[in-house]
Design a binder for these strands. Structure first.
Length: 623
DNA sequence: GCCGTTTTCGGCCCGACTGTTTTCAGTCG
């Protein structure tokens, strides 16, 4: 509901009541995280600080613009946001400021919080350093440590000074979060290096990587082994290791040269179930499982379930009772839950869905029969059409839609109608060859599906003025059209949204590629009215892409979930520009799974005939 | 500060490793 300006008087121009700029979800999350950090340093009860961090995380990934929603008087229900934080959001949305936050900032300088980033330095240490020595920045701390001034503090020694200096150095060299493909490369390298370690039965990469979170901080490896010492020894002496953070009988922590921290945990043979659950997380999911275990008289940890006594403490000594399981399915079963896929374990409703028997049947890579978005060297791809097609066929696909860029995207050497006509002839020739191979009974190389075909499409530019890059009669000649927006990204929300809506409603457009236009860690989402986008796409039957390129993953899992809930179809595409990039379909599928997507919502899980019928039907309906 | 298939109050997950404070607090995941 629009707010009425304060009682208007003739001498107050309307601009005087102009509203402050809207804070993004990321900005709100940053403020709440900072409040949580300050409260930690203050020594507030830990649950209060956790509450602020939790709310911040929820807001950061919330699909709706929280400040806008509050300002419009329809605050969304957000898990972890109760009365107190809701009031603060209200204030932030209306005024762009927060008095509570400003008071805390006066008490503790912002530079102080940077100290928390140093490995091994926590809130208690920061408080001590600030109150005893007045240290309020990393630079201050470095000087004090170098001058040997820390050892005067209780609990500090010369060794502690060295470890703080090492922590500061590590912080400065620390790479940011990794994209999924880079994490996968590290995992494969470590798996290779640990192969043949005596006693090692298996190695599982757990943690956020197993949940396929879009960016990964540390790697968590689980080793099921008969000889823990051998694994710990091997991990800590890998040639890629720059620094050993710790090593014990149950775990080893190392930092790889120019790479992430790797924690390797030991699982005793035959008891992997609770270890896998524990170290796959997320933390929020685990908390729910533990509460459920406790309700049933058991304490759950990575080691297994311990029977609780009447005092609520685990039974000890002769009475102690430990239940372990070999598989995760048995762990969930013990809690009277069906197995929950790793990608769902975020406490985003999966426990409730499991209890209600309503877990989704998540889409799998093997459900994909084609790829609706890939390029060749006719525009900005690396390989020629035949080579790309061959790679797609080896990847088990039944079809690809070749979607080179259209003419106005000059930087990608976009094609004009004449070039597209020439390309269509090449595609036809290749398809004729595939057909002949089948007729002659020749098995396609790699043993991939027979009946493989290339469909002809384009990646149609949505121009800055909102028009499309090719006229309708040219578009009508394609098997399928993927439209996307690369230019004029900074236009105001209304104009951007209008451009996308026009493309969605154009009967020749079948898919909107990478709808949010983000590059993870580099470029924010387009400022679109997402409700309007989803509504229009659902109504027009135009599919929204989940682009599997690891630096895009666009739609995000959260938006994909919203889109499907709004009745939209999705396309999971690779956007391959070279043969190796058809593997991006794996990342696209994993994000779709994080978004609770089922195969029935995915157009390229359909056969070629069904897909073509869908595209033709769309064009006809538009007339 | 949040939250409810026991609870609107009283909980809130649990353990490994480190350093050093010879019995534990701090940090981390």
């Amino acid at each position: 509901m629009p707010r009425r300006p304060p009682t208007a008087t003739a001498d107050v121009p309307s601009t005087a009541v102009e509203e402050p700029p809207l804070l993004s979800n990321a900005e709100i999350a940053r403020i709440l995280h900072e409040i949580g950090d300050i409260l930690e340093v203050k020594g507030e009860v830990v649950y209060k600080t956790v509450a602020y961090h939790r709310a911040a995380d929820e807001i950061a990934r919330h699909p709706v613009e929280v400040a806008r929603a509050y300002r419009e008087g329809r605050p969304p229900t957000i898990p972890g946001v109760g009365k107190a934080i809701a009031e603060k959001l209200e204030e932030l949305a209306r005024t762009g400021r927060l008095a509570y936050y400003e008071r805390l900032r006066e008490e503790f300088p912002a530079s102080l919080l940077a100290l928390l980033e140093i490995p091994g330095v926590g809130p208690k240490t920061v408080k001590l350093l600030y109150e005893q020595l007045g240290i309020d920045s990393i630079e201050d701390l470095r000087r004090a440590a170098e001058a040997g001034r820390l050892r005067s503090l209780r609990g500090f020694s010369a060794k502690a000074e060295q470890s703080i200096l090492a922590g500061i150095a590590a912080l400065e060299r620390r790479p940011g979060r990794m994209l999924l493909d880079r994490a996968a490369t590290h995992v494969a390298a470590i798996e290779g290096a640990l192969a043949g370690t005596p006693g090692l039965r298996r190695l599982v990469a757990a943690g956020s990587y197993r949940r396929r979170v879009e960016t990964i901080g540390d790697l968590d490896l689980l080793a099921e082994t008969d000889e823990p010492e051998a694994v710990v020894e091997r991990v800590t002496t890998l040639p890629e290791v720059e620094r050993v953070l710790g090593r014990g009988s149950h775990k080893a922590s190392v930092v790889l040269r120019g790479g992430p921290q790797v924690d390797c945990m030991i699982m005793p043979p035959g008891a992997a179930g609770t270890y896998l659950v524990h170290f796959t997380g997320s933390k929020a999911h685990n908390v729910r499982l533990r509460a459920r275990a406790r309700d049933r008289g058991w304490s759950l940890s990575e080691h297994g379930f311990l029977r609780l006594g009447p005092d609520g403490e685990p039974l000890a000594g002769a009475e102690a009772e430990l239940r372990t399981f070999a598989t995760e399915a048995e762990v969930y079963g013990f809690l009277e839950l069906p197995y929950i896929e790793p990608e769902l374990r975020e406490d985003r409703g999966e426990i409730e869905a499991a209890l209600a028997g309503r877990l989704p049947r998540l889409v799998e890579r093997s459900d994909l029969r084609g790829d609706l978005h890939c390029h060749s060297d006719w525009s900005d791809g690396v390989h020629d059409i035949a080579t790309m097609a061959e790679a797609a066929r080896r990847a088990g696909l039944e079809y690809i839609v070749l979607t080179d860029h259209t003419v106005s995207l000059a930087i990608a050497r976009g094609l004009d109608p004449a070039r597209f006509a020439a390309q269509r002839a090449v595609v036809a020739e290749l398809n004729a060859r595939y057909e002949a191979e089948e007729r002659d009974g020749r098995i396609p190389p790699g043993g991939s599906p027979a009946g493989f075909r290339i469909l002809h499409g384009c990646e149609l530019e949505i121009r800055a003025d909102g028009s499309l890059d090719l006229p309708g009669e040219v578009l009508a000649g394609f098997d399928l059209v993927v439209a996307s927006l690369h230019v004029g990204r900074r236009q105001p929300r209304e104009r951007l949204t209008a451009r996308v809506l026009a493309a969605i409603r154009n009967p020749h457009v079948d898919v909107i590629a990478h709808p949010a236009g983000r590059i993870i860690g580099e470029r924010d989402d387009l400022d679109l009215d997402w409700d309007a986008v989803f509504e229009a796409a659902a109504e027009a039957g135009t599919a929204l892409e989940l682009n599997g390129s690891p630096h895009r993953l666009d739609l995000s899992a959260e938006r994909a979930r919203q889109a499907v809930a709004a009745g939209c179809l999705l396309a999971i595409d690779s956007d391959a520009h070279r043969t190796t990039e058809f593997s991006h379909l794996d990342w696209g599928v994993s994000q779709a799974r994080r978004g609770w997507v089922e195969a029935t919502s995915v157009v390229n899980a359909r056969s070629r005939a069904e897909l073509l019928a869908w595209a033709a039907g769309k064009a006809d309906r538009g007339g």
